[in-house]
Design a protein around this nucleic acid. Structure first.
Lengths: 237, 237
DNA sequence: TCACTATGAATGAAGG
DNA sequence: CCTTCATTCATAGTGA
């Protein structure tokens, strides 16, 4: 999932990006207006980073401090607020789980029965709607036969976060999900190790070991304040 | 509505669920095959059943289990996954509601004269859209382009943003985000829903009573502002 | 081939 | 956390 999209970026410094003009209307399908709408529209970079944190950094439910830092970092790629980061993780995690939840779909048919017989037990449905061919739903938790299948999750299909087709780019492939319909294997590794491949690892400390914000909150902000220098600042994060 | 032009079915009696789905299928390039790589295309039977569940069964937001069962059932009519069922219901419900919103609006056409006195905040119908006059055309007429300065759109409702008069949001202007050096300030605290105007302003409270990140950022102390620097210097997350 | 419509898929935000 | 809503993007499928 996450396949397409990635609508227009509003990126930073963009300027040219249409900003004012409504682009030609022609633009079929393209996005007509960047809406200065209310909702946050993550840029590709932001998404990339978020995903990296999620999959490689193991961040799933960042604390307030983490959120602050993350959003601060992402801000260089575009407008963003803490809540966006918060929601992003919430949604990402929730969706991943949700998928897993109702995707029990037979990735690999547990049982032979080549010819599946449509014998779906129809239970009386409390809700009504019985009768006619239909009844099959309803609340009968049952038939949950297959537990989660191994490590696969995700509903089939695509990879998480591909960026928009047009955008090209993207890369990253890491998906952690499976796909049954695709030719390749997911090979998700799931090893969410913290270390980053590049070797540096000091990031993502989940375990807040850093005293600075623990000791005195107010110190944090000011601290950073003095910290940043316009030029240097590399973000070796 | 209802007129679905059902595409032709391409579904066949398969059942095997296209197992091959992708890869396997290998050759499926025959005419009209669905390339599995694309979106799910429900068969008439599937649609029939889904609609039956929706209208006669009263199913609107099936639970994960229901989704599993439903998709399992529908699978006999063609390839389908849990997410398809999930999205189907979501979309169906949403669109139905959307339509209703549009058609219904303007219960009492107050609008005529464009000059409505501004003093009165126009309320949208509870359900949604503001008077926006007849955009009955729909579908894509939306409010795509409203200058909506300030980020307000015609909707009224609950967005937290509106509540806080101050720009909150800031720039908005589309400009690139990054300018952290910029001119504005969050201004004094105060505001909004957050309590904390008790004078103390340490906001980053870890004890989440009110997660700052969920509220308008402007509520944060100005410190934050200075915080971000283009280069982002902070390190770990 | 393009305009347009219906609808699948995603995903930011919230609500509970 | 889980569920639901709103919106938007993307794409089959058709008709002119």
């Amino acid at each position: 999932m996450e396949t397409h999209h990635l609508h227009h970026q509003q990126e930073e410094t963009n300027t040219t990006t249409n900003a004012g003009g409504v682009n030609g209307g022609g633009g079929r399908s393209s996005y007509l207006c960047r809406q200065s709408s209310t909702r946050w529209i993550p840029t590709t970079e932001q998404i990339r980073i978020l995903r990296d944190l999620y999959y490689n950094g193991g961040v799933r439910s960042p604390s307030a401090e983490q959120i602050q830092r993350i959003s601060a970092r992402l801000r260089q790629y575009g407008k963003i607020e803490g809540k966006n980061v918060f929601y992003w993780f919430q949604n990402h995690k929730a969706r991943e789980r949700q998928k897993k939840r109702f995707t029990v779909d037979v990735p690999t048919p547990p049982i032979p029965t080549p010819t599946n017989n449509p014998s779906i037990p129809t239970f009386a449905s409390p809700t009504g709607m019985v009768g006619n061919n239909g009844s099959l739903l309803m609340e009968r938790a049952y038939m949950d036969c297959y537990g989660t299948v191994g490590g696969n999750i995700g509903w089939v299909g695509m990879d998480p976060y591909r960026i928009c087709p047009h955008q090209g780019e993207v890369g990253e492939g890491e998906m952690g999900e499976d796909m049954q319909t695709l030719p390749l294997f997911p090979m998700h590794g799931e090893d969410v190790c913290l270390g980053r491949s590049d070797g540096s690892d000091e990031c993502y400390d989940n375990n807040n070991s850093n005293p600075w914000y623990l000791t005195d909150e107010s110190s944090q902000p000011s601290l950073q304040l003095s910290l940043h220098s316009p030029g240097s600042t590399f973000g070796h994060y």
